[in-house]
């Protein structure tokens, strides 16, 4: 083993060249947003690309805010509300169901878990048309509840939390709680929830990201007057496509929260993505 380790310690430079190139390609378009957002329109009309940012950001962003038909902050607030409500709900329902599937015994447990896995295959667009009709009947078209309700639980979340509970909570811990007279709910609340907190945090991040970036359904059921951030972005891009500094300033602010999330919680997010994959 020791001999082998010495042999492979140094990687071929091609590995680093390749990975650096991949990283640059991954980062450049985001840097590009930053450049265009901070310069006046000239940056895009140059035949050769501009590499350095300018000082026009506030100017550009204010142009976007000044438009009567662009409801940027409303979109931002709606996105925060929608993503947060969905995230809290998904985390609670998934940890609870995940606990039940991992640690409680009941008839039909495996069949029900399998059903949940199968529902992951059902594409979201399949129910789009009736869903719109339902929202219309309930008077929720153009209301942000329309983009909250359908996402309150998640099959992926249940599955992830089941796997996490299986690996993070030893059976002895559950038994000890039972012996102490805990009900199953009390066990969940006082024993399981603290133990699965790291996994739940990953699920929260992934859910928040997914909701923040959702577009098809919000576009169908909301209007640019009461939008989510993505609906606003779509609207800005086709309404103000002649003024890209305005579009990109709004874009920069819209993508910033998730970029920061990756910078601060990148390790956990990556762990969650990889965890979900191996156990699938």
């Amino acid at each position: 083993m020791a001999r082998r380790r010495r042999g492979v310690r140094r990687n071929s430079p091609w590995v680093y060249i390749g990975l650096t190139l991949v990283s640059l390609i991954s980062i450049y378009p985001l840097y590009f947003v930053f450049i265009i957002a901070t310069r006046s329109l000239d940056a895009l009309n140059n035949p050769s690309p501009t590499w350095l940012p300018g000082g026009e950001f506030l100017n550009n962003f204010n142009k976007a805010l000044a438009r009567d038909d662009v409801h940027f902050w409303k979109g931002m607030i709606n996105s925060i509300i929608v993503s947060s409500v969905v995230t809290v709900s998904v985390v609670l329902t998934s940890t609870l169901a995940g606990f039940a599937f991992a640690k409680l015994k009941f008839r039909g447990r495996n069949a029900l878990m399998l059903t949940i896995l199968v529902t992951m295959m059902v594409p979201t667009q399949l129910g789009l048309i009736p869903l719109w009709g339902m929202m219309q009947q309930w008077g929720l078209v153009y209301d942000i509840w329309a983009v909250i309700l359908p996402f309150l639980t998640s099959a992926f979340g249940v599955f992830l939390m089941r796997q996490y509970t299986l690996s993070a909570v030893p059976d002895e811990l559950i038994e000890a709680a039972r012996v102490d007279g805990c009900t199953t709910f009390r066990t969940y609340y006082s024993v399981v929830l603290p133990a699965v907190a790291p996994g739940a945090a990953v699920l929260a991040l992934l859910t928040f990201m997914e909701q923040w970036n959702n577009y098809l359904w919000p576009r169908a059921v909301l209007s640019p007057d009461n939008p989510t951030l993505q609906v606003t972005l779509g609207f800005i891009s086709y309404t103000y496509y002649t003024d890209y500094s305005l579009v990109f300033a709004a874009l920069a602010v819209a993508i910033l929260p998730l970029i920061l999330a990756v910078l601060f919680f990148g390790k956990q997010i990556i762990g969650g993505i990889m965890e979900g994959a191996v156990k699938a």
Partner: peptide, 14 residues
């Protein structure tokens, strides 16, 4: 790993 994850955190509209 973080660098290659960044694109996925960027919304599809963006």
């Amino acid at each position: 790993r973080m660098a290659i994850l960044l694109p996925n955190a960027t919304s599809v509209t963006a």
